[in-house]
Design a protein around this nucleic acid. Structure first.
Lengths: 167, 167
DNA sequence: GTACCTGCAAATGTTTTGCAGTACG
DNA sequence: CGTACTGCAAAACATTTGCAGGTAC
Protein backbone atom coordinates (compact mmCIF):
# COMPACT_ATOMS: atom_id res chain seq x y z
CA UNK A 1 0.00 0.00 0.00
CA UNK A 2 2.34 2.73 1.20
CA UNK A 3 5.33 1.24 -0.58
CA UNK A 4 6.79 4.35 -2.21
CA UNK A 5 9.99 3.68 -4.19
CA UNK A 6 12.92 6.01 -3.59
CA UNK A 7 12.26 8.27 -0.62
CA UNK A 8 14.17 11.29 -1.92
CA UNK A 9 12.53 11.73 -5.32
CA UNK A 10 9.75 14.22 -5.95
CA UNK A 11 6.24 12.82 -5.48
CA UNK A 12 5.74 13.15 -9.22
CA UNK A 13 8.84 11.10 -9.98
CA UNK A 14 7.80 8.55 -7.38
CA UNK A 15 4.39 8.30 -9.05
CA UNK A 16 5.96 7.53 -12.43
CA UNK A 17 8.35 5.09 -10.82
CA UNK A 18 5.51 3.28 -9.07
CA UNK A 19 3.53 3.07 -12.31
CA UNK A 20 6.55 1.60 -14.07
CA UNK A 21 7.16 -0.90 -11.27
CA UNK A 22 3.56 -2.06 -11.36
CA UNK A 23 3.58 -2.38 -15.12
CA UNK A 24 1.10 0.45 -15.59
CA UNK A 25 1.32 2.47 -18.80
CA UNK A 26 2.55 6.03 -18.65
CA UNK A 27 -0.16 7.65 -20.74
CA UNK A 28 -0.34 11.34 -21.57
CA UNK A 29 -3.44 11.63 -19.37
CA UNK A 30 -1.70 10.14 -16.35
CA UNK A 31 1.28 12.39 -16.93
CA UNK A 32 -0.85 15.50 -17.15
CA UNK A 33 -2.95 14.64 -14.10
CA UNK A 34 0.09 13.77 -12.00
CA UNK A 35 1.96 16.92 -13.05
CA UNK A 36 -1.01 19.09 -12.19
CA UNK A 37 -1.67 17.31 -8.88
CA UNK A 38 1.88 17.92 -7.66
CA UNK A 39 2.34 21.17 -9.57
CA UNK A 40 1.74 23.31 -6.51
CA UNK A 41 1.25 22.73 -2.80
CA UNK A 42 -2.41 23.61 -2.55
CA UNK A 43 -5.11 21.13 -1.65
CA UNK A 44 -7.48 20.43 -4.52
CA UNK A 45 -10.76 18.70 -5.31
CA UNK A 46 -11.26 16.06 -7.99
CA UNK A 47 -13.26 18.58 -9.98
CA UNK A 48 -10.60 21.30 -9.89
CA UNK A 49 -7.93 18.77 -10.80
CA UNK A 50 -10.00 17.89 -13.86
CA UNK A 51 -10.40 21.54 -14.79
CA UNK A 52 -6.71 22.32 -14.37
CA UNK A 53 -5.71 19.22 -16.30
CA UNK A 54 -7.97 20.14 -19.19
CA UNK A 55 -6.44 23.59 -19.31
CA UNK A 56 -3.17 21.84 -20.21
CA UNK A 57 -4.40 18.95 -22.25
CA UNK A 58 -7.84 18.68 -23.81
CA UNK A 59 -7.85 14.88 -23.69
CA UNK A 60 -8.62 14.19 -20.03
CA UNK A 61 -11.89 12.73 -18.86
CA UNK A 62 -13.46 12.88 -15.41
CA UNK A 63 -13.30 9.09 -15.10
CA UNK A 64 -9.56 9.06 -15.70
CA UNK A 65 -9.05 11.77 -13.10
CA UNK A 66 -10.87 9.66 -10.51
CA UNK A 67 -9.00 6.52 -11.53
CA UNK A 68 -5.63 8.29 -11.30
CA UNK A 69 -6.49 9.92 -7.96
CA UNK A 70 -7.39 6.54 -6.60
CA UNK A 71 -4.04 5.16 -7.75
CA UNK A 72 -2.05 8.03 -6.22
CA UNK A 73 -3.82 7.62 -2.89
CA UNK A 74 -3.25 3.86 -2.88
CA UNK A 75 0.41 4.50 -3.70
CA UNK A 76 0.69 6.68 -0.59
CA UNK A 77 1.60 9.79 -2.55
CA UNK A 78 -1.60 11.72 -2.02
CA UNK A 79 -3.80 11.95 1.06
CA UNK A 80 -7.53 12.40 0.89
CA UNK A 81 -8.67 14.82 3.57
CA UNK A 82 -12.18 15.72 4.59
CA UNK A 83 -12.16 19.22 5.98
CA UNK A 84 -15.88 19.89 5.94
CA UNK A 85 -16.22 20.81 2.29
CA UNK A 86 -18.95 19.25 0.18
CA UNK A 87 -16.41 16.90 -1.38
CA UNK A 88 -13.06 15.66 -0.10
CA UNK A 89 -9.80 17.41 -0.92
CA UNK A 90 -6.47 15.89 -1.89
CA UNK A 91 -3.24 16.88 -0.17
CA UNK A 92 -0.14 16.82 -2.41
CA UNK A 93 2.24 17.49 0.49
CA UNK A 94 1.54 14.20 2.18
CA UNK A 95 4.36 12.23 0.57
CA UNK A 96 7.03 14.71 1.67
CA UNK A 97 5.46 15.61 5.03
CA UNK A 98 3.32 12.68 6.15
CA UNK A 99 2.84 13.90 9.70
CA UNK A 100 1.50 17.40 9.25
CA UNK A 101 -1.90 18.45 10.54
CA UNK A 102 -4.38 21.01 9.26
CA UNK A 103 -5.80 24.17 10.71
CA UNK A 104 -9.10 25.14 9.17
CA UNK A 105 -9.89 28.78 9.80
CA UNK A 106 -13.51 29.13 10.90
CA UNK A 107 -13.47 32.71 9.65
CA UNK A 108 -12.28 32.24 6.09
CA UNK A 109 -12.16 28.41 5.75
CA UNK A 110 -8.55 28.69 4.65
CA UNK A 111 -6.49 25.55 5.19
CA UNK A 112 -3.10 25.96 6.85
CA UNK A 113 -0.68 23.14 7.44
CA UNK A 114 1.38 22.75 10.58
CA UNK A 115 3.66 20.28 12.21
CA UNK A 116 4.78 19.78 15.77
CA UNK A 117 7.19 17.12 16.88
CA UNK A 118 5.93 17.06 20.47
CA UNK A 119 2.50 16.12 19.18
CA UNK A 120 4.01 13.26 17.19
CA UNK A 121 5.71 11.92 20.27
CA UNK A 122 2.67 12.24 22.48
CA UNK A 123 0.39 10.68 19.86
CA UNK A 124 2.74 7.76 19.59
CA UNK A 125 2.83 7.27 23.36
CA UNK A 126 -0.94 7.45 23.69
CA UNK A 127 -1.38 4.97 20.86
CA UNK A 128 1.04 2.49 22.38
CA UNK A 129 -0.55 2.96 25.81
CA UNK A 130 -3.72 1.58 24.26
CA UNK A 131 -1.91 -1.41 22.82
CA UNK A 132 -1.69 -0.19 19.23
CA UNK A 133 1.06 0.57 16.75
CA UNK A 134 0.38 3.91 15.05
CA UNK A 135 0.14 3.86 11.27
CA UNK A 136 -1.26 7.15 10.12
CA UNK A 137 -2.38 10.26 11.96
CA UNK A 138 -4.96 12.79 10.89
CA UNK A 139 -5.20 15.89 13.05
CA UNK A 140 -7.55 18.73 12.15
CA UNK A 141 -8.01 21.80 14.29
CA UNK A 142 -10.75 24.25 13.54
CA UNK A 143 -9.63 27.61 14.81
CA UNK A 144 -10.43 31.25 14.47
CA UNK A 145 -7.65 33.52 13.32
CA UNK A 146 -7.81 36.27 15.97
CA UNK A 147 -4.24 37.32 15.45
CA UNK A 148 -4.49 37.34 11.70
CA UNK A 149 -7.67 39.36 11.82
CA UNK A 150 -5.99 41.96 14.00
CA UNK A 151 -3.17 42.19 11.49
CA UNK A 152 -5.71 42.48 8.67
CA UNK A 153 -4.46 39.40 6.93
CA UNK A 154 -7.29 36.92 7.05
CA UNK A 155 -10.83 38.35 7.12
CA UNK A 156 -12.61 36.29 4.53
CA UNK A 157 -10.05 37.33 1.98
CA UNK A 158 -9.08 35.12 -0.94
CA UNK A 159 -5.43 35.74 -0.18
CA UNK A 160 -2.96 32.88 -0.35
CA UNK A 161 -2.57 32.26 3.36
CA UNK A 162 -1.88 28.64 2.61
CA UNK A 163 1.40 27.79 4.27
CA UNK A 164 3.73 24.84 4.30
CA UNK A 165 4.62 22.50 7.15
CA UNK A 166 7.18 23.91 9.53
CA UNK A 167 9.74 21.15 9.83
CA UNK B 1 -23.87 27.14 16.95
CA UNK B 2 -22.49 25.19 19.89
CA UNK B 3 -24.87 26.80 22.35
CA UNK B 4 -26.05 23.78 24.33
CA UNK B 5 -28.47 24.62 27.14
CA UNK B 6 -27.79 23.01 30.52
CA UNK B 7 -24.40 21.31 30.59
CA UNK B 8 -25.35 18.50 32.97
CA UNK B 9 -28.41 17.09 31.20
CA UNK B 10 -28.24 14.07 28.95
CA UNK B 11 -27.65 14.85 25.28
CA UNK B 12 -31.18 13.69 24.58
CA UNK B 13 -32.65 16.07 27.14
CA UNK B 14 -30.48 18.84 25.79
CA UNK B 15 -31.78 18.14 22.30
CA UNK B 16 -35.41 18.47 23.43
CA UNK B 17 -34.56 21.58 25.40
CA UNK B 18 -32.86 23.16 22.38
CA UNK B 19 -35.84 22.35 20.18
CA UNK B 20 -38.18 23.97 22.69
CA UNK B 21 -35.97 27.03 23.00
CA UNK B 22 -35.86 27.47 19.25
CA UNK B 23 -39.61 27.04 18.90
CA UNK B 24 -39.26 23.77 17.04
CA UNK B 25 -42.05 21.21 17.40
CA UNK B 26 -41.39 18.03 19.33
CA UNK B 27 -42.80 15.56 16.84
CA UNK B 28 -42.90 11.80 17.34
CA UNK B 29 -40.35 11.43 14.54
CA UNK B 30 -37.88 13.79 16.17
CA UNK B 31 -38.36 12.03 19.48
CA UNK B 32 -37.74 8.60 18.01
CA UNK B 33 -34.69 9.68 16.01
CA UNK B 34 -33.15 11.50 18.97
CA UNK B 35 -33.79 8.59 21.33
CA UNK B 36 -32.21 6.13 18.93
CA UNK B 37 -29.24 8.41 18.18
CA UNK B 38 -28.33 8.72 21.86
CA UNK B 39 -29.63 5.27 22.81
CA UNK B 40 -26.16 3.75 22.88
CA UNK B 41 -22.61 4.99 22.55
CA UNK B 42 -21.77 3.53 19.17
CA UNK B 43 -21.08 5.60 16.10
CA UNK B 44 -23.73 5.27 13.43
CA UNK B 45 -24.47 6.20 9.83
CA UNK B 46 -27.53 8.07 8.62
CA UNK B 47 -28.78 4.88 7.03
CA UNK B 48 -28.45 2.75 10.17
CA UNK B 49 -30.13 5.49 12.21
CA UNK B 50 -33.06 5.33 9.79
CA UNK B 51 -33.22 1.54 10.05
CA UNK B 52 -33.08 1.55 13.84
CA UNK B 53 -35.66 4.32 14.06
CA UNK B 54 -38.05 2.42 11.81
CA UNK B 55 -37.69 -0.63 13.99
CA UNK B 56 -39.26 1.44 16.74
CA UNK B 57 -41.67 3.57 14.83
CA UNK B 58 -42.86 2.91 11.29
CA UNK B 59 -43.44 6.60 10.57
CA UNK B 60 -39.93 7.88 9.94
CA UNK B 61 -38.67 8.94 6.53
CA UNK B 62 -35.13 9.21 5.28
CA UNK B 63 -35.55 12.94 4.70
CA UNK B 64 -36.57 13.53 8.31
CA UNK B 65 -33.59 11.54 9.55
CA UNK B 66 -31.24 13.76 7.55
CA UNK B 67 -33.04 16.92 8.67
CA UNK B 68 -32.85 15.88 12.32
CA UNK B 69 -29.21 14.83 12.06
CA UNK B 70 -28.41 18.21 10.63
CA UNK B 71 -30.16 19.89 13.53
CA UNK B 72 -28.36 17.80 16.16
CA UNK B 73 -24.98 18.56 14.59
CA UNK B 74 -25.74 22.28 14.40
CA UNK B 75 -26.82 22.17 18.04
CA UNK B 76 -23.41 20.77 18.99
CA UNK B 77 -24.85 17.52 20.33
CA UNK B 78 -23.61 15.20 17.61
CA UNK B 79 -20.33 15.23 15.74
CA UNK B 80 -19.98 14.09 12.18
CA UNK B 81 -16.78 12.12 11.73
CA UNK B 82 -15.25 10.84 8.54
CA UNK B 83 -13.24 7.74 9.34
CA UNK B 84 -12.74 6.45 5.83
CA UNK B 85 -16.10 4.75 5.40
CA UNK B 86 -18.16 5.35 2.29
CA UNK B 87 -20.39 7.75 4.20
CA UNK B 88 -19.71 9.78 7.35
CA UNK B 89 -20.54 8.50 10.82
CA UNK B 90 -22.15 10.36 13.71
CA UNK B 91 -20.65 10.34 17.19
CA UNK B 92 -23.19 10.50 20.04
CA UNK B 93 -20.48 10.89 22.71
CA UNK B 94 -19.40 14.28 21.47
CA UNK B 95 -21.64 16.35 23.72
CA UNK B 96 -20.39 14.69 26.91
CA UNK B 97 -16.77 14.24 25.77
CA UNK B 98 -16.01 16.90 23.15
CA UNK B 99 -12.26 16.38 23.14
CA UNK B 100 -11.85 12.67 22.52
CA UNK B 101 -10.04 11.30 19.49
CA UNK B 102 -10.53 8.10 17.53
CA UNK B 103 -8.36 5.10 16.89
CA UNK B 104 -9.33 3.23 13.76
CA UNK B 105 -7.96 -0.28 13.78
CA UNK B 106 -6.44 -1.07 10.39
CA UNK B 107 -6.97 -4.75 11.08
CA UNK B 108 -10.66 -4.81 11.91
CA UNK B 109 -11.74 -1.18 11.21
CA UNK B 110 -13.13 -1.00 14.72
CA UNK B 111 -13.41 2.51 16.13
CA UNK B 112 -12.08 3.09 19.64
CA UNK B 113 -12.29 6.38 21.46
CA UNK B 114 -9.51 7.81 23.58
CA UNK B 115 -8.63 10.97 25.40
CA UNK B 116 -5.37 12.41 26.60
CA UNK B 117 -5.04 15.67 28.45
CA UNK B 118 -1.44 16.25 27.41
CA UNK B 119 -2.53 16.19 23.80
CA UNK B 120 -5.19 18.81 24.54
CA UNK B 121 -2.61 21.07 26.10
CA UNK B 122 -0.08 20.64 23.33
CA UNK B 123 -2.71 21.14 20.62
CA UNK B 124 -3.77 24.34 22.27
CA UNK B 125 -0.20 25.62 22.49
CA UNK B 126 0.54 24.78 18.86
CA UNK B 127 -2.66 26.47 17.74
CA UNK B 128 -1.90 29.65 19.67
CA UNK B 129 1.71 29.62 18.43
CA UNK B 130 0.25 29.99 14.96
CA UNK B 131 -1.94 32.90 16.00
CA UNK B 132 -5.22 31.03 16.27
CA UNK B 133 -7.77 30.29 18.96
CA UNK B 134 -8.71 26.61 18.89
CA UNK B 135 -12.38 25.83 18.40
CA UNK B 136 -12.72 22.16 17.65
CA UNK B 137 -10.20 19.36 17.36
CA UNK B 138 -10.50 16.20 15.33
CA UNK B 139 -7.75 13.64 15.89
CA UNK B 140 -7.83 10.29 14.14
CA UNK B 141 -5.11 7.71 14.46
CA UNK B 142 -5.07 4.68 12.23
CA UNK B 143 -3.32 1.94 14.10
CA UNK B 144 -2.87 -1.79 14.08
CA UNK B 145 -3.84 -3.68 17.17
CA UNK B 146 -0.71 -5.78 17.76
CA UNK B 147 -1.42 -6.28 21.42
CA UNK B 148 -5.06 -7.12 20.91
CA UNK B 149 -4.17 -9.61 18.23
CA UNK B 150 -1.72 -11.33 20.57
CA UNK B 151 -4.44 -11.55 23.17
CA UNK B 152 -6.83 -12.90 20.56
CA UNK B 153 -9.27 -10.09 21.07
CA UNK B 154 -9.33 -8.18 17.82
CA UNK B 155 -8.63 -10.15 14.64
CA UNK B 156 -11.39 -9.05 12.33
CA UNK B 157 -13.92 -10.12 14.90
CA UNK B 158 -17.28 -8.41 15.20
CA UNK B 159 -16.78 -8.17 18.94
CA UNK B 160 -17.78 -5.00 20.76
CA UNK B 161 -14.32 -3.54 21.25
CA UNK B 162 -15.84 -0.09 21.09
CA UNK B 163 -14.75 1.65 24.27
CA UNK B 164 -15.52 4.93 25.95
CA UNK B 165 -13.29 7.96 26.52
CA UNK B 166 -10.97 7.60 29.48
CA UNK B 167 -11.46 10.84 31.38
C1' DG C 1 -56.64 27.30 13.05
C1' DT C 2 -52.16 27.82 11.24
C1' DA C 3 -47.52 27.44 10.79
C1' DC C 4 -44.40 24.14 10.87
C1' DC C 5 -43.27 19.43 9.81
C1' DT C 6 -43.38 15.12 7.30
C1' DG C 7 -43.24 11.83 3.45
C1' DC C 8 -42.70 11.18 -1.15
C1' DA C 9 -40.31 11.43 -5.17
C1' DA C 10 -37.61 14.03 -8.03
C1' DA C 11 -33.37 16.64 -8.21
C1' DT C 12 -28.60 17.17 -7.17
C1' DG C 13 -23.87 16.21 -6.80
C1' DT C 14 -20.18 13.01 -6.58
C1' DT C 15 -17.93 8.87 -7.74
C1' DT C 16 -17.98 4.34 -10.15
C1' DT C 17 -18.57 1.23 -13.96
C1' DG C 18 -19.48 -1.24 -18.62
C1' DC C 19 -18.10 -1.09 -23.03
C1' DA C 20 -16.28 0.01 -27.59
C1' DG C 21 -12.55 2.28 -29.53
C1' DT C 22 -7.50 3.99 -28.87
C1' DA C 23 -2.68 3.86 -28.06
C1' DC C 24 1.35 2.46 -25.08
C1' DG C 25 5.15 -0.60 -24.89
C1' DC D 1 0.22 -6.06 -32.29
C1' DG D 2 -2.04 -7.23 -28.03
C1' DT D 3 -3.61 -5.65 -23.99
C1' DA D 4 -4.25 -2.09 -20.85
C1' DC D 5 -6.25 2.55 -20.91
C1' DT D 6 -9.48 6.14 -22.11
C1' DG D 7 -13.84 8.56 -22.93
C1' DC D 8 -18.53 8.39 -22.85
C1' DA D 9 -22.74 7.79 -20.84
C1' DA D 10 -25.32 5.31 -17.73
C1' DA D 11 -25.44 3.61 -13.10
C1' DA D 12 -24.83 3.83 -8.35
C1' DC D 13 -24.93 6.29 -4.13
C1' DA D 14 -25.58 9.75 -0.64
C1' DT D 15 -27.93 13.77 0.44
C1' DT D 16 -31.11 17.73 -0.45
C1' DT D 17 -35.30 19.89 -1.86
C1' DG D 18 -40.20 21.17 -3.57
C1' DC D 19 -44.59 20.40 -2.60
C1' DA D 20 -49.07 18.56 -1.01
C1' DG D 21 -51.02 16.91 2.96
C1' DG D 22 -50.72 16.14 8.11
C1' DT D 23 -50.13 17.61 12.98
C1' DA D 24 -48.26 19.93 17.20
C1' DC D 25 -49.30 23.72 19.88
Amino acid sequence: MTNSPAPSLTPQARAYETMRTQGLRLTSQRKTITEVAFGNREHFSAESLLARSRRRNAKVSRATVYRTLSFLVRAGLLRQVDLGQSSPLYDPNFADHPRHGHFVCVDCRKIIEFHDHCLDVRESIVTKDHGFSPRRVNLQIEASCDALREKGTCPRSARANQSHPKK
